[in-house]
């Protein structure tokens, strides 16, 4: 079992979490996730997740012109996204502590 399998279930939550403090564009979000330790994550996963979260109404977008290079599409959490993040965090904490106690070596 590798982390990619585990990531699938929590990718939404991870993306929402890195957008909590600061809006970001696709590649920047990928960089933040990798910097946070999710190194196996791929660009397509982040792009696809952003599209899906946007379609679900959790994110808003705006375009920022860039001096060197193409325009960048920034994603930001909206209130629905924030409440989704809050809910996801609680579910994750309960799940993680259950798994911790299951896996504890005595």
């Amino acid at each position: 079992m590798d982390t990619t399998q585990l990531l699938k279930g929590v990718l939404d939550l991870a993306v929402l979490a890195v957008l909590r403090e600061e809006d970001g564009y696709g590649y920047d979000i990928l960089r933040r996730l990798r910097a946070a330790g999710l190194e196996e994550i791929g660009d397509a996963s982040v792009y696809g997740t952003l599209r899906r979260l946007f379609a679900a109404g959790y994110l808003t977008t705006y375009v920022v012109p860039s001096e060197e290079g193409p325009h960048r599409k920034y994603y930001a959490l909206n209130p629905a996204g924030r409440s989704q993040l809050k809910q996801g965090r609680e579910i994750w904490r309960g799940f993680a502590s259950t798994m911790d106690s299951l896996l504890q070596e005595s």
């Binding site: 564009y25 696709g26 590649y27 660009d43 792009y47 860039s66 060197e68 290079g69 193409p70 325009h71 960048r72 599409k73």
Partner: peptide, 8 residues
């Protein structure tokens, strides 16, 4: 558009 960002 996303690929253009990446390519840059």
């Amino acid at each position: 558009a996303h690929l253009a960002e990446v390519a840059s």
